[in-house]
Nucleic acid binder design. Structure first.
Lengths: 342, 342
DNA sequence: TTGAAAGCGTTACCAG
DNA sequence: CTGGTAACGCTTTCAA
């Protein structure tokens, strides 16, 4: 066992309380005693026992809020699961988590939700998937200024004062997809690019970084004009079918948003299952299915579960121990899956 | 906060100690009282507070042993780091970890090491990378029979009584590599397969499952006769150079063991950097370098750090809470890396 | 400025 | 078989 507060207290000839105050700079201890204590702690390599700390701190209950939007999409369902799990795990560490799910993406609704959590429920920290509007940004800033830390997840508002962002590095995600395409298309060929909403920052970033990188590393590739399917499978189906009719020699399809399944259906309908390469995003039941059938070649995942789980833990660390995240951007990584390592 | 032992004790009109004994079947409590207590706990949905448990159990110090072999290879260095980290993290949970590193792979040496840990140091649980010999197997079985749980990592002795194995699913690893090859070689072509020791079970499994799967899914591919480089870069260099001379039209190289860097050097020397696809194993500084330079296309990783970290935690869970791992095989997964998502 | 003591939830030891 | 009590390491409150 390591050296404890009590041992330090005995050596210094003071009480445990004094040591605690000295080492945590809580004041109410003379500078001279404090220095002596700090020296002893340093020499002995004191390192607070997290279990003891956690147990003692369970008295001070804290309350966190979590707002998740567009909860009906498969990915956000996984985010919600991550949040629920965090709520569970944090429960006996003295943390209560209030989770609010919003079906749509609506700034006004989200604003109301924030107000409810802060004003009525009195949360001390907030994690949310923000709509990127000036009102939300201002609201976040006001919360932070009033001492309530805010963490964005899945989607970011970089210009706000949020403590950090937990989510995908979309530039990396796009470039990684480009790298895969280049490896699969040594001879070049036509690539069809499908996105969701043009206004969606994540989709846009994935697409532009994909296109730029692919043009750079695979000059033989020809990018067909990008199409938007608004995250809908039926639109994606038709757009793909149409693209295939106009360009029967399409070699690969890059799907930067939802609508993957529509693409897969269209390929199978055209008898091109596994012949046209597909790179798409997110581990979801439907995507896994299409991956196993060989329609999707690579699935890039953003670890949605982690996106729901991590922010609550970060808030807890901050509120309990004052530990800020090391980096403003907590990227969850770009995971690569094929049918074999799913 | 959840319901606590104390609350249950109050309701049942008994002391906390009695509740504790009843709920954990420690005996020394009349069956009738025990039932009443269990009923109350059940109704209230009692769930032990892990923090409290951990703290209380720090009195009962436990001691674990960890033996790591061939510690000079890059991968085993990472395993060692994982073990060191686990030792650190478990320290203030009342667990002391004795780590022994053996440079070579030597059954006699390992046996001596086990004896020292068990007989002299009195460890209560053991994690090790075993040499697969009858003596080691028998020794493991004897330890298990004498109440000392054993976990194998990185390498397994499936026929022994070890509690579980933490490491790579080499069949999956081989097939995944085959899947990548197939995606990269739509037109087929020659693939050069390089392994380490023919006697190494992991290498063999990676190779056979790779070959079988690739033959199955990519009939256009021609596998060149497999070569062994004995995990040495210099041999790998020469073997690759020779293979390239004999088959200038090699499309890809599969490296199932160490020696990756020799392969890369040979390719670069031949001016084929990035033109011949390379699939290799393990995230190590050198491999990362070759990945970034584009010589290696895909790196498959077995999460060596996890292999060092996890077993000690599993032993702790077993010894403290009696929790056995859910599965006999705790596979650490097959992670895919390109230069973009490293 | 400092110390004493209670408390967090659990386990363990010792009397009865 | 059972209860009381101390202990684990730390925080916090209340007196001094």
């Amino acid at each position: 066992m390591s050296v404890t507060l009590k041992q330090i207290a005995e050596i210094a000839g003071v009480s445990r309380g004094t040591v605690d105050r000295a080492l945590h700079n809580r004041g109410r201890v003379s500078e001279e005693v404090a220095q002596r204590i700090r020296k002893i702690a340093d020499d002995l390599g004191y390192c607070p026992n997290e279990v003891g700390q956690a147990l003692a701190k369970t008295r001070r209950q804290i309350r966190l809020g979590m707002i998740i939007q567009s909860t009906e999409t498969p990915t956000m369902r996984i985010v919600a699961q991550g949040a629920a799990r965090a709520a569970h795990d944090l429960h006996n560490l003295g943390v209560e988590v209030l989770i609010r799910e919003l079906k749509s993406v609506d700034a006004a609704q989200e604003l109301a939700c924030i107000r409810e959590l802060v004003d009525d429920e009195g949360i001390q920290g907030l994690a949310l998937t923000p709509v990127n509007t000036p009102e939300i940004c201002t609201k976040i800033n006001r919360l932070v200024e009033s001492g309530i830390p805010v963490i964005t997840l899945n989607t970011d508002i970089p210009q706000s004062k949020r403590m950090c962002f937990v989510g995908e590095d979309s530039v990396c995600a796009g470039k990684t997809a480009a790298g895969l395409m280049a490896l699969m298309l040594p001879e070049g060929g036509k690539v069809f690019v499908l996105t969701g909403h043009l206004s969606n920052a994540t989709h846009k970033l994935r697409c532009t970084s994909f296109s730029e990188e692919l043009m750079r590393i695979a000059p033989g590739v020809q990018l067909l004009p990008m199409q938007s399917c608004f995250d809908r499978d039926d639109y994606a189906f038709e757009l793909t079918q149409h693209a295939l009719e106009e360009n029967p020699d399409i070699k690969a399809i890059y799907v930067a948003a939802n609508g993957q399944h529509g693409v897969c259906e269209a390929l199978r309908a055209a008898g091109l299952n596994g012949r046209v390469r597909v790179v798409a995003y997110d581990i979801t039941p439907q995507n896994n299915e299409d991956l196993k059938r060989g329609t999707i070649s690579f699935l890039l995942d953003q670890r949605a579960h982690e996106q729901g789980y991590r922010p609550l833990n970060l808030l807890r660390d901050y509120l309990f121990a004052g530990r800020k995240p090391e980096d403003e951007f907590c990227y969850t990584g770009t995971i690569l899956k094929t049918k074999y390592n799913l």
